[in-house]
Computed example of a mutant assay.
Amino acid sequence: MDAAPFRTKLPYYYPFAFGDGQVTVLSDGPLELGDPSTNFLGVSAETVGDMLHQNFLPKDNVTLEQNVPLVEINGRTILFDTGMGTSKAFGPTTGRLLESFREAGRDPSEVDVIVLSHAHIDHTGGICDGNGNLNFPNALIFISESDLVDWTDGSKLGSGFEFQVANARRNLLPHKDRIFFFQDGQEFIPGVQALHAPGHTLGHHCFLIQSGSDRLCFMGDLTHHHVLLMERPWMEFKYDTDPKLSAKSRTRVLDMLAHDRIQVMSYHFAWPGAGHIARAGDGFRYHPSAMQMLI
């Protein structure tokens, strides 16, 4: 038996039809946060533990997925976020995005556009390899201007973000000639509209994607957990730049997605991260979509 560590049981990709095109979810591997009570704040540790227990989840450790959608619409091949890359700051199981590409029979050179929800390491770390070479050599890069400035400058950030700034500088600054910006509400790629949802970072965006009659919202880091930040959307998250602004954005966007019944794609929800949002009391509930196993 192969004793290689972290060997997956199945290939870590999932394609599904979307309008006139296709979405292929590629995994960058699970990301371990550790003790839930130190990461999800604003309520008691007992409350956090009870919420996890009631949903049949471990009370001592939160593991997030990293679901990277490869979207093929209108003649473009668009990658939303890029995973951790070579960094193991959040555990040894991250950084498998290129392996997932290979498992899916896809080549990183196919990617025309990289769209970044924000500049944190688990979203920008895979732009370059360990030597600074582009993993997606033919891709233009889109990011909000404020996130590029904030996370490559670092002067407006508090302590503890130094490794995030170093990552943003390494992956973004050498390639400024291929970086472009979008504005809130702008359809900056045919079928892709930016939706400003600040708080996690001040330039954080979600993206409304449409092909034919199908609509999908890639939420980025609007909400990190399908239970904790959904049932209690005003709970705070440790890594938010402005936790209260993040909660305002979260409730505003989730309410819109629930009202308009728009399918969502979540970066950090349980694999493969596609589903719908519904109102539930003072919060929301995530309903995973049935997987499409026949093409």
Rank of each mutant, 00 (worst) to 15 (best):
P69R: 12
S87M: 02
M84Q: 03
G29R: 13
T77H: 06
N74E: 11
P30D: 11
F56M: 11
D81K: 00
S44W: 05
S27L: 14
T82F: 07
S87N: 06
P11L: 10
Q22G: 00
D28A: 13
Q22K: 08
V68C: 03
K9D: 12
F6A: 14
T82Q: 09
G34N: 07
N39T: 08
E72R: 15
V68A: 05
A4V: 05
F6G: 00
R7C: 07
T77D: 09
D50S: 12
T47L: 13
I73G: 00
Q22E: 05
G29W: 06
N55E: 09
P5L: 08
Y13P: 11
T24H: 15
E46Y: 06
F16L: 15
G21N: 00
G85N: 01
P5K: 06
V23C: 02
T38D: 13
A4S: 06
S37W: 04
S37K: 11
S37C: 04
D50W: 03
F40W: 11
F16D: 05
G34K: 07
K88H: 13
G83Y: 01
R76S: 14
L57F: 02
S27I: 14
E72D: 14
M84S: 12
F80K: 04
I73T: 06
F80T: 01
F40V: 08
D20S: 15
D81G: 00
D2S: 15
K88G: 06
Y13G: 00
G21L: 06
F80H: 06
D50G: 03
D60Y: 07
L31C: 08
T24G: 14
D50I: 05
D28W: 07
G85K: 03
S44P: 06
T38K: 11
D20V: 08
P30M: 07
A17D: 11
G34I: 10
V43I: 13
T38V: 13
F16W: 00
G29M: 04
S44F: 02
F6S: 05
K9T: 04
Y12L: 15
A45G: 10
S87G: 03
G49P: 09
D20A: 14
G42P: 11
V48E: 01
V71G: 04
T77N: 14
E32D: 07
S37Q: 02
S87P: 04
N61K: 14
